[in-house]
Amino acid sequence: MATRRRMLLKVIILGDSGVGKTSLMNQYVNKRFSNQYKATIGADFLTKEVQIDDRLFTLQIWDTAGQERFQSLGVAFYRGADCCVLVYDVNVTKSFEKLNNWREEFLLQASPSDPENFPFVVLGNKIDVDGGNSRTVSEKKAKAWCASKGNIPYFETSAKEGFNVEAAFECIARNAIKNEPEEDMYLPDTIDVGGAGRQQRSSGCEC
C-alpha cells in the first residue's frame, strides 16, 4: 500500500443547464465564483489533490462541457466514473424533477458493475438566492428522494458563497474511494499516449 502511486479518482457532475455545476467545481478547486453565466466553455476537467485518512488522491472533476444541454453526452464521458454528483437548483423545481432522469441516464450509459451501490451525491445548489425566499424545493423533499434511492448523501450548497462546498466534495471524494475495487487495477496496462498518469485511474465502470 505504501508504495502505491497516487490514485486518480474520476468524478462527473450532472444536472440541468444553469444549476451551477461549473461554479461548484470552480469554487471547490479555485475558490472563485463568477456571477456571469456562460454555458461552460474552456474547461475539460479540473483536478485537485486531496488527502483522506493519510492517503493522497487526485480528484479529477469532469464538467459536461455543455453537452448536457440537449442530452448529448456521449458514453465515453461516463466511462470509468468513481462517483457521480447530481446537482439541482433549489429555486427551480424542474431541475429537481430531472435528477431522476440524470441518475438513470448515468446508470444506463456507465453501466457500473454494481448499480445498486454505485456512489452518487446530490447537491441542492443556489440556496443563497434571495435569502432563500425564492426556494421551490424543500430540503425535506430532496432528502426524501435521496433516501428513496438508497440513501444518497445530500448537501445544500451555495457555490457563490462557498457554503458547504468543501464538505460536499470531501464526501464525494470519500464515496469515490469506496467505489474503488480491492484489486484496484482493472486496466493495469493501458497506454496513455499523452504521458499523463491516466492509467493509474481505476475503472469503476465497465461496459
Binding site: N26, N30, R32, S34, G42, A43, F45
Partner: peptide, 8 residues
C-alpha cells in the same frame, strides 16, 4: 484546453 484552471 488547459486543465485545472478557470476560464477567467
Amino acid at each position: 484546453p488547459v486543465h485545472g484552471d478557470d476560464d477567467s
